[in-house]
Nucleic acid binder design. Sequence first.
DNA 1: TCACGGTTTCCTGCTT
DNA 2: GAAGCAGGAAACCGTG
Length: 310
Amino acid sequence: MFYRSDLFNGIMASTVFPSLADVFTEAILTEDIFQSLDQVSSRTMSETMEAVKGLNENDFLNQHVLSEEKAEVIIAGTVDSSIQELTQPDDLMIPLMWPNVYGDQGGETLVVEHESRDFSSEPENDSSCGGSDGSSPMISYSKVEVKTEPGLDEQRQAAPYLPVQAILSPYEEEELEDSYDAVIRHKKRRKSDAEYIADGRKRPGRKKGQTSSVYHLWEFIRDLLHDPKQRIIKWENEQEGIFRVVKSSEVAKQWGNMKKNREKMTYEKLSRSLRYSRKEGYFEDVPKDEGYPKKLCFKFGPKSHGWKRL
DNA sequence: TCACGGTTTCCTGCTT
DNA sequence: GAAGCAGGAAACCGTG
């Protein structure tokens, strides 16, 4: 059984290599991860990207597959499980590692070495990941060849009639946009892909759209709402993801504690972050004229997930 | 090392 | 007048 493995592959892969995310989600349906891995090799980047267009991380969860019954099969020794808990990479019971992700500069082929552990062969009462009874869990390895779009050079060679500017990498497109912004915003100039290649170096930093693993404000609020003991924040409409801050200063204080004991955190600052997160899609406007409070009332947005109970 | 995401801080002006 | 909302601008900081 590889449900959990597949689930988190979907999420984790989306941060490592976006085009793999839906492939591993498909594996949930086939119940055979390696069969699915074989399919990867016959799938092009453009086909994959077409398949995931319009999906967000929540779609990778395939919630209908993660019924309580199936989740219990995979979480050895854990009966009380929920989709909310499954959304945290830390909860991963079958660790998936990507020790080697490499490809040539042109992007023709990308090889992924992938390791998984099958806990179905371990005693049911062992809830740890380490095999405390001394038995060694099955470890599987697989290599996946992924066909990607031709590199920029190949694309440009194939279409010599187009100006170089017509075929740009995402970074080059961004740089072009930045060149307009720079006049107004005085942003620091970024090196182009070509400059990094010329230097024999890999472009540092995150890729655009790649999210970090830090604990986010929306996650903090989601987890607060799932805590039945707290009285500082409450649901207004759980199905719609609408909630209300009851004790603003206390919520700010707890958020400050969460972020390395920042004692200076205030509700004013927290609400600024919240408004900024709203702009980013983690929250959204509360519908007007539906009787919700005008103040201290917020709604989870399309980029947040795990707040709705199944 | 450095680009990026996600805040954090400060601020002004507006609304309830 | 207090509390909260809205959003610009810039700094900060962890991450990859």
